[in-house]
Computed example of a mutant assay.
Amino acid sequence: MEVITIEKKTFDEMNEKFERFVDRVEEICRRCGDKGLGEWLDNQDVCRMLNISPRTLQTLRDNGTLAYSRISQKIYYKPRDVRRILPVVEERRKEAGYRKRTI
């Protein structure tokens, strides 16, 4: 283990700067409100909301109908984007049902 010594004055200055940094970060978080992951939906949430399969969800992503964000290997969606495409999904469901009945 390596030990590093610094003057108390230097330590106090570093500590004070760190405290100011923490205060600034907390203020930014308060100003921005809760824009964290709590507002985002995952694949399972979206499939449940739209009553679609994971494969259909993949198609919506692939053809650009539904915007998404990828963090590591997980995909997230904004609730407003999901609500925006709800009429599109319902219309496609009606069209598919109509085609099935006419055959």
Rank of each mutant, 00 (worst) to 15 (best):
M1Q: 06
E2K: 01
V3L: 15
I6M: 07
K8E: 10
K9A: 10
T10N: 13
T10W: 12
F11H: 05
E13L: 06
E13F: 05
E13I: 00
N15H: 13
N15E: 12
N15M: 12
E16D: 15
K17P: 05
F18I: 13
R20S: 14
R20E: 15
V22Y: 02
V22Q: 15
V25L: 04
E26N: 10
E26R: 05
E27M: 02
E27L: 05
I28S: 08
I28M: 10
C29S: 14
C29P: 06
R30N: 09
C32L: 11
C32R: 13
D34E: 11
D34C: 08
L37T: 09
L37H: 02
G38I: 05
L41C: 02
L41A: 00
N43C: 02
Q44D: 03
D45S: 11
D45A: 14
D45R: 05
D45E: 15
V46P: 00
C47I: 07
R48D: 03
L50F: 03
N51Y: 04
N51K: 06
T56I: 00
L57P: 03
Q58F: 02
Q58A: 04
D62Q: 01
T65I: 10
L66T: 01
Y68R: 00
Y76L: 05
R84C: 00
I85T: 07
L86W: 00
P87Y: 10
P87G: 13
E90Y: 13
R92Q: 14
R93W: 02
K94F: 10
A96I: 10
G97S: 14
Y98W: 11
Y98K: 15
Y98L: 15
